[in-house]
Design a protein around this nucleic acid. Structure first.
Length: 270
DNA sequence: CAGATCCTGTCT
DNA sequence: AGACAGGATCTG
């Protein structure tokens, strides 16, 4: 679920439900996820009106007229459920709006998080301070990336997963973008030819945009009562395809680096 | 840098 | 029983 495109489609799905609405009920059902909820979460949000929704990297942002922004992260297994018909043990935070819509933050693995921070100081939110540019934003250019990777000996895959280099990429889209750009995941970041770097930036954009577009089509399901945000169609070229043929005919390989699977084609990627 | 860690669920 | 999972952060 939650890399940048999934968070983006989640925010887009939440927007029509929450924007302009008063939060009539805010009910944490446990004290923490990855870290503690703000102790006064309920008090600070109940009665507040949602003024807007946004996203920074993989974080969703829900701004209110109280000067606070609720910052949520979906971790590995988080999702928002809309008008759930039942509340289970993994529904950790319940919201209700003035219109009577109900939302539940469901997260079995509890790697997600919920926090509050002053809206005007959002750039100072600890997780945002050292973050790199948005991969879909104007700052993310081949020139920027060349500079960020200059002299780096770490594998390009690890560097693209580093949110300080570029913020929002996860395991799936890094594998896909590297395949699209023809770059080996193990190549040292500082040793990528300019021409390949110039292919990598648009590849990252294209992969994310396609996923957002595909995710958008699940919004219909999302908006359905008791619906859930589904996975977008698995149109991946290498991710999860170990042993299957690449488009070139070569078999897709999997390797494990720092405990994470990398899928790649040794013929297409150098 | 790699590795462990936080959790639960699912699939071999 | 063991491997593995879309993340982030801390420790050697």
């Amino acid at each position: 679920m939650p890399e940048l495109p999934e968070v983006e489609t989640t925010v887009r799905g939440l927007r029509p439900v929450l924007e302009g609405q008063t939060l009539t009920s805010v009910e944490p059902r446990r004290a923490d996820l990855r870290f503690a909820f703000p102790a006064d979460l309920r008090q600070r949000l109940t009665g507040a009106r949602v003024t807007g929704l946004g996203r920074r990297a993989k974080y969703g942002l829900i701004a209110t007229d109280r000067g606070d922004t609720m910052i949520f992260h979906l971790g590995m297994s988080g999702r928002w459920r809309l008008d759930p018909s039942d509340i289970g043990k993994h529904d950790h935070l319940l919201l209700e709006t003035g219109e009577g819509r109900r939302l539940s933050l469901n997260d079995p693995r509890r790697f997600g998080s919920v926090d509050l921070f002053p809206t005007e100081k959002l750039v100072d939110y600890p997780a945002f301070v050292a973050m790199g540019p948005e991969p879909l934003g104007p700052e993310f250019t081949p020139a920027y990336l060349a500079r960020a990777l200059e002299g780096r000996t770490a594998p390009i895959k690890a560097l693209l997963l580093d949110q300080r280099v570029v913020a929002g990429l996860g395991n799936i889209y890094v594998c896909e973008a590297l395949h699209m750009a023809g770059i080996s995941p193990t190549r040292a970041g500082g040793r990528i030819a300019t021409k390949r770097l110039e292919a990598l930036v648009p590849a990252i954009r294209a992969v994310l945009e396609a996923a957002i577009e595909a995710g958008g089509s699940t919004l219909r399901d999302y908006a359905r009562p008791d619906g859930e945000l589904g996975y977008f169609a698995k149109q991946w070229r290498v991710y999860g395809r170990e042993g299957e043929p690449c488009l070139c005919g070569q078999t897709v390989k999997r390797r494990v680096d720092s405990g994470r699977s990398t899928f790649f084609c040794a013929r297409c990627q150098r």
